[in-house]
């Protein structure tokens, strides 16, 4: 408070209940219609009103909420569980809105542009082949087809559907989609096998939902058979972060298996248990050997995994491969001097 403004007298005169009169004055107009709305009273409207009030109280709540979402909300038993769901919806809504705005802005720019483009674009003669997107697609498919004939197989084990929630399953599928794309675009792709993929099972349904018609044209092998029935057992290596064996070198004649699993709640030893049951050899990446690990679990996402494996296959260089481990999880590589020493040892 500034010193020159010492005004004890006016502040005492201040009518402290003035605001109440202001608040009460606007009432009669609003009072009557409310009672009508209350008559259709059910738990659904009650929860709808609760959501509205939470919004007014400044909590992260979506602006619009559908009846299905309200029903999901009602099924959730505790207050915090409900708030979490509302927060999730709110963030989703905000992202959607931001995307829409961005698109609108882009469209606006596009609408303004055409006149200039028409002025600039003149017939352009060149002896180079025009590089269209379809050319690239063709090349990628060609490579993928080639890998299906001669490439090294990489197995994704699809037996974990019972351990995952719907949300985790959706995440898994989106990671698988990414994985397939990354693999296709690499110079020497893997021959990807989706093993134990049950038709009409949860994995299959979600994959179909995302791929649609492209599913049948995809250059990967999908089978209901388990990996042990397709390949000789001694060639198989299960990659799992719980494994006691550290992978030393990448072996080109082995068939590596990755479990298609996302565990948001820690499920230690799940894929290791599978490998133990089938008596397969297991391995984990030498993360501690090359990285100063700081925080986080040592399991990686499927797309990170394929990037690491692809780089390993192409270069055999652990340092290059482990670049794809998220930066937040480690504090840089182990000293390069040691690193080169290790490399010589291999």
């Amino acid at each position: 408070m500034r010193k020159e403004e010492i005004q004890p007298v006016p502040s005492e005169k201040l009518d402290l209940d003035e605001w109440e009169n202001v608040m009460k004055s606007g009432l009669p107009e609003k009072g009557s219609p409310e009672i009508l709305e209350h008559e259709g009273d059910s738990s659904l409207t009650a929860i709808k009103e609760l959501v509205e009030m939470w919004r007014m109280a400044g909590k992260t709540v979506p602006e619009n909420i559908s009846n299905e979402q309200l029903k999901v909300l009602m099924e959730r038993s505790t207050k915090s569980y409900r708030k979490k769901y509302l927060k999730y919806l709110a963030i989703k809504e905000r992202l959607k809105k931001a995307k829409k705005e961005r698109q609108m802005a882009e469209r606006k720019v596009m609408l303004e542009k055409p006149i200039e483009i028409e002025e600039l674009s003149e017939p352009w003669n060149t002896f180079f082949l025009q590089s269209l997107k379809s050319f690239y697609d063709c090349m990628y498919k060609w490579r993928a087809a080639q890998s299906m004939m001669f490439g090294q197989p990489l197995v994704f084990d699809m037996v974990y559907d019972i351990y995952m929630s719907h949300r985790e399953m959706v995440n898994t599928i989106s990671q698988l989609l990414k994985t397939e794309g990354l693999n296709r675009k690499s110079p020497y792709p893997f021959h990807i096998h989706f093993c134990s993929l049950q038709t009409e099972g949860p994995y299959h349904k979600e994959l179909l939902k995302h791929y649609g018609e492209a599913w049948d044209k995809l250059l990967i092998t999908t089978t209901e058979k388990a990996h042990v029935d397709m390949f000789p057992k001694d060639k198989l290596v299960y990659l799992t972060s719980d494994s006691p064996n550290v992978m030393k070198t990448y072996e080109h004649d082995k068939i590596y298996i990755v479990g298609s699993l996302v565990d948001r709640s820690i499920q230690t030893g799940l894929s290791l248990a599978n490998a133990k049951r089938l008596n397969l050899s297991t391995a984990r990446l030498p993360l501690e050997k090359y990285l100063h690990w700081s925080v986080g679990k040592k399991n990686l996402t499927l797309d990170q995994m394929i990037l690491i494996l692809l780089t390993l296959k192409d270069t055999g260089d652990w340092k290059k491969a482990l670049e794809f481990v998220p930066k937040r999880k480690h504090e840089g590589f182990v000293d390069t001097q040691n690193y080169s020493q290790e490399k010589i040892n291999f």
């Binding site: 109440e20 608040m23 009432l27 409310e34 609760l50 509205e52 009030m53 939470w54 007014m56």
Partner: peptide, 18 residues
């Protein structure tokens, strides 16, 4: 009690913390 009267009249429902 004053706040209660005002809030009851002004807003349809109250949130859980209120």
């Amino acid at each position: 009690y004053d706040v209660y009267e005002i809030m009851k009249a002004r807003f349809k429902t109250l949130d859980t913390s209120a």
